[in-house]
Design a protein around this nucleic acid. Structure first.
Length: 464
RNA sequence: GGCGCGGUACCCAAGCGGCUAAGGGAGAGGUCUGCAAAACCUCGAUUCGUCGGUUCGAGUCCGACCCGCGCCUCCA
């Protein structure tokens, strides 16, 4: 049984897709006004874990992720640099896709862009106006939350308490009630706009997700994800629009990822306390280590980013890599031990079951590490045969369909002059000229190559 | 003020009423090795923010309190 924590009910629920064996997944994507920071990627990596788990569990997954390429920030950014909106955003879109690849995040099936779905949004806004759930005010269209009694259910916000008080709304447009939100914003001097039946203007932020998710996934979908900060008002508003328009339940399971914090404070653009993936790559970080770091803490738990934490993740992942390396390079006796097959099967089952429990990654990783220790132990006692090693490797690779933290298959080639040095060192060792041998090893270490002497011969790996 | 999250070993982190409180990192000792590295073995919280309560039995449920954080405004 698969269980997820549904923000809507505030509790764990058994997961049942609308259509047997298929999952319709919508995840809130980036607003492409800048390079995303690694906090943003925590959310995308959580969604990647979810998706990969569902695939491993045998579901067909239809995944849509939007790209917000028109909003206040993109408009401002483009204007500042004297670029067209499209020129400005295309850079960041490209960078985003590059980052996804770097972090081994599986691509969505469709990446709809707001600017390419204006008609869908207009149609919805028109419909909401017709139903009396929206109104015009000085050329803009607003959703009237009074017309949607369930408003506040997701965020558990009481409308009465939302009244006037608290904070000042920074929106520059006029509306009837403070918490009504813009569906369509009237064109402003010097800003991009679309000439539509609603008048000249551009869409509000929330409507795009409603329009684009229903466009590709239908009016009701299985899972909708995002960061915890999207709950209110973004997702609350999406529910209001979509359900008011279609008259049926919009999303069955809302899954939200907690924040990445740095020094105990939320990482965010406005606070300036953020790192982009590029920042970290420039520091020599291995992106897959970052992936593992972001992946290995449960998605509903706040994660504190520190370089020490990153180092711990690196070391932890290295243990898995060393294990795989060992299995691939050890010379073993032919045949198979009887218990290995059962053990491998149990590991896979336990791994899946752990994840089935609201993506309990800690438990899942514990299964993997227990397995590694068990096999290593047999390895050191010469209790593993050739066929066992193959089976164990296959199991780890199966697990890695979800984790995606293993080394790339291709063997990296070392420059010939380095290979020559390794040869020379082998000769020196044979001659018992250990001073020379150690000097060469040290020299290679300086160049980021670590040598290990094993019964099977020398092997090298990159450090860092 | 309202809503919500977290406080488990030196660090990260599972556990959601009951076998000896997972797992990873770091550390200590040992085995192997020319030396390293990796791996293996052993050690490491009589204790789970504090104080009460419920229970035969509580990190695990209830209450109060302390500490840290998030949302209520664009934000993953």
């Amino acid at each position: 049984m698969i269980r997820f924590f549904n923000t809507l009910s505030g509790s764990l629920e058994e997961f049942r897709p609308l259509k047997e064996g298929e999952v319709r997944l919508y995840t809130c994507g980036p607003t492409v006004y800048d390079y995303p920071h690694i906090g943003n990627y925590r959310a995308y990596i959580f969604e990647d874990l979810l998706k990969r788990f569902l695939l491993l569990a045998g579901f067909k997954v239809i995944h849509v992720m939007n790209i917000t390429d028109v909003d206040d920030k993109t408009i401002k950014g483009a204007a500042r640099q004297g670029l067209s909106l499209q020129e400005y955003t295309s850079r960041y879109i490209e960078a985003f896709f590059e980052d996804l690849k770097t972090l081994r995040i599986m691509p969505a099936d469709i990446y709809p862009r707001a600017t390419e779905h204006i008609p869908d949004m207009v149609r919805m806004v028109r419909g909401l106006l017709d139903k009396g759930c929206a109104y015009y005010k000085e050329g803009s269209v607003y959703f009237s939350i009074q017309k949607f009694p369930a408003y506040g259910r997701l965020a558990k916000i009481d409308l009465a308490e939302l009244k006037a008080g608290a904070r000042v709304d920074s929106d520059e447009y006029e509306k009837e009630s403070v918490h009504d939100f813009a569906l369509w914003k009237k064109a402003k001097e010097g800003e991009p706009f679309w000439e539509t039946e609603l008048g000249a203007g551009r869409p509000g932020w929330h409507i795009e997700c409603s329009a684009m998710s229903t466009r590709y996934l239908g009016p009701s979908i299985d899972i909708h994800c995002g960061g915890i900060d999207n709950i209110f008002p973004h997702h609350e508003n999406e529910i209001a629009q979509s359900e008011a328009y279609y008259g049926q339940k919009f999303v069955n399971y809302w899954l939200h990822c907690h924040h990445l914090v740095v020094d105990g404070e939320k990482m965010s653009k406005s606070k300036g306390n953020f790192y982009t993936l590029r920042d970290l790559l420039a520091r020599g970080l291995n992106p897959v280590d970052l992936r593992f770091f972001l992946l290995s803490t449960h998605y509903r738990k706040m994660l504190n980013f520190t370089f020490d934490g990153l180092e711990q993740a690196r070391a932890s992942r290295q243990r898995v890599l060393d294990f795989v390396y060992e299995l691939e390079h050890r010379t073993l006796a032919p045949g198979a031990e009887p218990e290995i097959q059962g053990l491998a099967e149990k590991v896979l089952t336990d791994f899946k079951e752990s994840l089935a429990d609201d993506l309990n990654i800690s438990a899942a990783l514990a299964v993997l590490f227990d397995f590694i220790r068990e096999i290593n132990s047999r390895l050191s006692r010469d209790l593993l045969k050739q066929e066992d090693a193959v089976r164990v490797l296959r199991t780890v690779e199966e697990i890695d369909r979800v984790l995606a933290i293993l080394q790339e298959r291709k063997e990296e080639a070392l420059p010939p002059e380095l290979l020559e040095k390794i040869e020379l060192r082998q000769w020196a060792r044979k001659e018992k000229n250990f001073a020379l041998a150690d000097a060469i090893r040290e020299e290679l270490r300086q160049q980021g190559i670590m040598l290990e002497d094993t019964k099977e011969g020398v092997r090298w790996k990159r450090i860092k």
